[in-house]
Design a protein around this nucleic acid. Structure first.
Lengths: 158, 158
DNA sequence: TATTGTTATACTCTATAACTATA
DNA sequence: TATAGTTATAGAGTATAACAATA
């Protein structure tokens, strides 16, 4: 798994392969992600739930109840950031908090029925803009993005 | 170009195709982009230039000198947001501002020599994290991400 | 002493509304 | 009156540092 030399070789190959008058793959992927993220955040106006909050709720739905620290680690943010996300979700009634049965320091955060329903239903409407953009692509492009989403998420989770 | 009915059909097909126990492509792509964006922003600590500023400089390098409004439109942000980006870049000496020859209201923003050098050189170092992640992929995955970056940027630019 | 979580504080990115200067 | 740009202000998202409670 840990083969820096090999990675460097492959990296060199990849650089050499790229056309010299075009930005690197890293540059292009970064700019694409920055711009799509900006557009997605701009769609939040119609909803009271932010992208960050939705991302955390997705994580809870996928993983089940988690402590704030676990949730912060999975979302790759610092604990104080997650404190704020959880507080907002709790106030909205989308997650509940209870004490850990044996460790008084820990809390356990889980989706409420309302939070689950929100994630499973309202998100579709919320994603209308992206859904439309995706619908304008041809099936091969969507298939490509589907695999790209998997790779990107894997990279971001490292 | 404008075929909503066709898009709806294709959208329906795409929904039917997806596995019912898996989040939609829109959800997965959105979460992947949010998480990678977060990781990329976290890499900014070592540099004084933000992702947003770099994105604007890339645009200037690609398009040549632009007015603040044109730059804001291309980056899909509001003019006041671009005002701040330009001010920061100007203070850092990466862009310069001059008056439009005939229209006194307009300004023209362009990369300085220093800004051009920055974009063409220092970005590579700045993207070390993403470069490493990309180097760990196999060539087919990088090729896939290269095409995905193109599609994503096109979607975000609409 | 180490871990979990929160509070305090600050910075970036973005937006809208209101203003100034020019056309 | 319309356009280009800036200033004022606000809110989201994130971080680090310092603190409290528990193990």
């Amino acid at each position: 798994m840990d083969e820096p030399a090999n990675n460097l070789v492959r990296y060199a190959n990849y650089v050499v392969e790229s056309e010299s008058d075009q930005p690197s793959l890293a540059s292009r992927l970064r700019l694409a992600v920055v711009r799509l993220n900006r557009r997605l955040r701009a769609q939040r106006a119609s909803s009271s739930v932010s992208l960050t909050q939705i991302s955390a709720m997705f994580c809870l739905r996928k993983c089940g109840p988690l402590s704030p620290s676990e949730l912060a680690a999975k979302e790759r943010v610092q604990p104080p950031s997650m404190t704020r996300v959880i507080a907002a979700l709790e106030e909205a009634g989308f997650v509940s908090r209870r004490q850990h049965p044996t460790d008084g320091r820990q809390a356990i955060v889980e989706l409420t029925e309302r939070g689950t329903a929100y994630i499973e239903a309202e998100i579709c409407a919320r994603e209308a803009w992206l859904d439309l953009r995706l619908a304008e692509l041809d099936p091969a492009e969507r298939e490509l993005l589907s695999r790209a989403a998997e790779i990107i998420d894997r990279m971001a989770g490292q």
